[in-house]
Simulated assay, not measured.
Amino acid sequence: MSELMTSPRRWSCLDQFSLEATARDMPALAQAAPELAPGTVVAIPFLPGESDAARLEAAARVRALGFTPMPHLAARHLPSRAALLRLLEGWRAGAGVERLLVLAGDRADPRGPYQDALSLIETGLLAAHGVRQVVISGYPEGHPRLSDACLARAMRDKLAALAAQGLAAEIATQFGFSAPPVLAWLAALRMAGVEVPVRLGLPGPANMRTLLRYAALCGVSASASVLARYGVSLNRLRSHAGPQWLVRQLADELTPERHGAVLAHFYPFGGIASLTGWLARQRFIDFPLPEARCS
């Protein structure tokens, strides 16, 4: 097992961050590869209408670039056990996948036998196909269709099922624009005894129109006052903004004792090149993070 230890080191949003890249983003990821650290975790969304061949190829390309592929596995989009097995076997054989982000998916009704992330975990097939770490979803601002109590219960059940199978766990959150709800959610999570690392979702630099579109799709709060502080003008839909204000506020308020192990997970809405360029311009921020030490 690993113990979380406090270390007074300097942190920046470049430190062990992860990012999202779709199958269509692979050429852009290849171009940006020299700007990213070897082993960077790259999440590959499970997009509706995308073929399994594209999902498998994307993971293989991420691995070939020297990064760590983390495909999404959306329970409600899987039509059958055979389809699940094809993906797990393909990811293992073609990309050595050991880490998955498992979620329910945004379909109202399941295509097949899997209702939610827990139903996938409980099959035992993930561990049987070489998966060693499973990332589950977190919602600091709540879910548009699920109560906070339902979300908390689902998280407890998923973490318990993963622990029972000896699988490591992390939580990756939806992106947001405002620090206070994130900080409150993290504090409540730790008070409830959840100690696994959390990757906080941060929107990469993008224009106002793009940010608002994704916020609406994902049920994220994007009020005028929050976006103004974030650096986006309501009167300039094409103006670009990065998350530097949000990162600074989080860094000023996060403490290991209260909020635990926290890393960044970027959603590059403005494109991977835009994100890596923004990251290259950032300066280190004083923020002591917990380190993992094997015992």
Rank of each mutant, 00 (worst) to 15 (best):
M1A: 14
M1H: 05
M5A: 14
M5Y: 08
M5E: 14
T6A: 15
W11N: 06
W11I: 02
C13L: 09
L14F: 04
L14Q: 15
L14N: 15
F17L: 14
A21E: 07
T22E: 04
R24N: 13
R24Q: 14
A28G: 05
Q31T: 12
L36K: 05
P38T: 03
P38L: 04
P45H: 09
L47T: 06
D52T: 11
A54Q: 14
R55F: 11
E57M: 09
V62Y: 08
R63V: 00
G66S: 11
P69T: 12
M70H: 04
H72D: 05
L78D: 01
L78T: 00
S80P: 09
R81I: 07
R81Y: 14
R86V: 12
R92M: 10
G96Q: 10
R99H: 14
L101T: 02
A104S: 15
D106W: 07
R107L: 15
D109Y: 01
G112I: 11
P113M: 12
Q115S: 14
Q115L: 15
D116H: 06
A117H: 08
L118V: 10
L120P: 04
L125A: 15
A128K: 14
R132T: 13
Q133S: 11
I136L: 12
S137M: 09
E141C: 10
G142M: 07
R145S: 12
R145L: 12
L146E: 12
L146M: 11
D148W: 08
A149S: 13
C150T: 15
L151I: 13
R156Y: 00
K158P: 01
L159I: 03
Q165H: 04
G166E: 11
L167I: 09
A169Y: 12
E170D: 11
E170Q: 13
G176P: 01
A179H: 02
A184E: 12
A184K: 10
W185P: 02
L189G: 04
R190H: 01
G193K: 07
P197Y: 07
P197G: 06
P197M: 06
L200W: 04
G201Q: 09
G204Q: 08
G204T: 03
P205N: 03
P205H: 04
A206I: 02
T210R: 10
Y214N: 12
A215F: 04
A216L: 13
V220R: 04
S223L: 07
S223D: 09
S225V: 08
L227Y: 02
R229M: 00
G231E: 04
S239Q: 15
H240Y: 06
G242V: 01
G242K: 06
W245H: 08
W245A: 08
L246N: 07
R248Q: 13
R248W: 01
Q249I: 01
L250P: 02
E253K: 00
T255V: 11
R258G: 00
A264E: 02
F269N: 11
Q282I: 02
R283H: 10
E291Q: 12
C294A: 14
S295H: 13
